[in-house]
Structure formats: C-alpha cells, structure tokens
C-alpha cells in the first residue's frame, strides 16, 4: 500500500562503489556541478554570439528588441523564479522526508515549467511565425529602419538561444514528471533526497540562463 504521507522507500541506500552516504552525496553534488560547468559553456557560446553582434549592430538591435513584449517575458521570468523557489522547497521537504509536500512542490514546479512553454509558444513563437518573422526565405519584414538580413540575424539569435533554453525547460518537464512518479510509487531508486537535489540544481541553472537572457533580449539592448 503506497502512502502519500511519508516516504516508504528503503532509506539511504549507499551504492557499492561508495564507502558511506556522506561520500556518495558529496560525489553526486560535485558531479552535477561539473556537468553544470559544461552547461554554462554551452550557453556561453549563445551569449557570446549575441554579444558580438549586438556590439556590432547596436542601433539595429535596439530597434529589434521592441519586437519582443517585455510583459510576456516578465511573466515568464516570474514563473521561473517561483518554480526555482518551489523546487528549493521540495528539496527542503525531501530532506525532512515529507512526501506529500515534496510532491506538491514538484507538481507546482512542473506546472510552472509547462506554463512557461505554453506562454512562449502561444504568445511569442506562434505569432512570430505567423508574421513571417522566422529567418529563412519566407522572412517578411517591413521595418524600413532595420535591414531585413540583420533582422534575420537577430531572429536567428533569438530563436536559437530561447529555443535551446526552451529545450532545457522541456527536458525539465519530462524529468520532473518521472521524478514525481518515482517518488509517488516509492521506487527504490529514490532512496534519499539526492535525486530531487540534482534535478533542482539543473532547474536552477535553467532559471539562471533566463535571468541573463531576459534583460539581454527583452529589456536593454542599448
């Protein structure tokens, strides 16, 4: 019988390659951080490309950033911040082994992640696509102050960067769903709070990317 109140998994399994739980947990955290280093460099390329071209085409980029609605970006920022908070809370409850609370926090996080994607699609990607604001042969552009090809470059950066970020959000949604399921059914692989902590680290990183992405694209390209 699966109870939602408390955790029924075998507690604190130590895998065979480790000596004790403390070593195992420290190793996982360090491993995750070294993976996040690669993620930073990964997005670093996108940011660097943006920086180079904005430096070069500054006035155009200023005109172009008005193509984005800061309100929608702002809502998404708030959503991500809230989800970041709730996943930190989930780790907190998992450490205290309060199963229902963990599930609720993770559920809220997942809901935020999904609404992020939905907002992005409904209010940004799809309208832009319909306006022909997608780089390529079908690009349609009528702003006389910005040459069409520079606009395409800018939209390339925008779609490339937010697309990769969105992909990370999507992966987050999948992972959160799996984690919630595993926790709910007391799966033996969730023997301590580390899986939640790992996924939390990943999710905070996704948030950090957005923390930089939002002002750069939506607020201040001047």
């Amino acid at each position: 019988m699966i109870s939602l109140k408390k955790m029924n998994q075998p507690q604190d399994t130590v895998y065979e390659q480790f000596e004790d739980l403390a070593q195992q947990q420290e190793t996982y955290v360090l491993g995750m951080w070294s993976f996040l280093v690669t993620e930073v460099m990964f997005f670093g390329v996108m940011f660097m490309s943006y920086i180079v071209y904005r430096w070069k085409y500054q006035p155009y980029f200023y005109a172009l950033h008005k193509e984005l609605d800061w309100r929608i970006g702002g809502i998404n920022t708030a959503i991500l911040l809230a989800s970041s908070f709730s996943v930190a809370l989930a780790v907190h409850y998992h450490q205290k082994k309060k199963k229902m609370n963990v599930l609720m926090c993770l559920g809220f996080t997942n809901l935020c992640a999904i609404s992020f994607i939905v907002i992005k699609l409904l209010f940004e990607y799809i309208p832009k696509w319909n306006h022909g604001h997608y780089p390529g042969p079908g690009f349609s552009w009528d702003n006389p102050y910005v040459p069409s090809h520079i606009a395409q470059l800018w939209f390339s950066l925008y779609f490339g960067t937010t697309g990769l970020h969105g992909l990370h959000v999507l992966i987050g949604v999948i992972l959160f769903s799996v984690l919630m399921y595993l926790i709910a059914v007391d799966h033996p692989s969730i023997s301590d709070y580390l899986p939640t902590e790992m996924l939390g680290l990943y999710w905070h990183f996704v948030d950090i990317v957005w923390i930089f992405l939002y002002p750069l694209y939506y607020l201040m390209p001047k």
Binding site: E26, W33, L36, E39, V40, F47
Partner: peptide
C-alpha cells in the same frame, strides 16, 4: 537555492569555474 553557500570549497570552485571560463 542551489545551496553552494553550504557546500565544500571544491563545489564553490566548480560553481564559479564555468562563469570564469566564459
């Protein structure tokens, strides 16, 4: 949120490494 404040210094180092290298 990520708790680096409460982690060992090697984790702190890795947390900074990517941003520095960028």
């Amino acid at each position: 949120f990520m708790g680096v404040k409460y982690q060992s210094s090697i984790v702190k180092l890795y947390a900074a490494l990517g941003f520095l290298w960028f």
